[in-house]
Amino acid sequence: MNVLYLNLTRCIYCRACEVACEREHDGISRVAVTLVDPRQPVPVSCRHCEKHPCLEACPETAIEAAPGGAIIIHTRKCISCGLCVIACPFGAIELDAGGKIAEKCDLCEHRQRDGRLPACLLTCPARCIEYGPLDDILAVARTKPGATFVAAMGETGTVVTLPDRSVPGV
């Protein structure tokens, strides 16, 4: 069970992950770096939730919870109804530019198949994104400054460390 870890104290809003994701996925980025507050960017992508409303919403069998923990959209089965887009609590799924296919993070399935890690975490200049077994990730996250929680539905999924952004001074 491998999960993503977003150490948000480190995110610098450079959007390298978006450009990398876009390159890896035929010109469509499945991560959107979003300012959740004027000083807090978050690379928002699929949290690969343990309890996955997108999968439950899909009228076909286009969304699968893969054994490794990844939630995968089988695009050939997608009927473009958009119900998963509404069901996702995090805005991580969107229909592609033509409105045809639901697109979201697949944890770089194609890269992992030949032993390469997802592009977003390799490219992140600030080392904000990590990836590994949930327990290892939680052990690392607890050593970081800030509050740590599973930012997904259920007990497993993407882990986040959230900083305290109060800046004394002027």
């Binding site: 450079c14 390298a16 978006e18 450009v19 490219t123 200049p125």
Partner: peptide, 12 residues
């Protein structure tokens, strides 16, 4: 220098 990382410009 970078441990593999690249900024958006490097990626492009």
């Amino acid at each position: 220098v970078c441990e593999g990382a690249l900024c958006p410009k490097g990626n492009a």
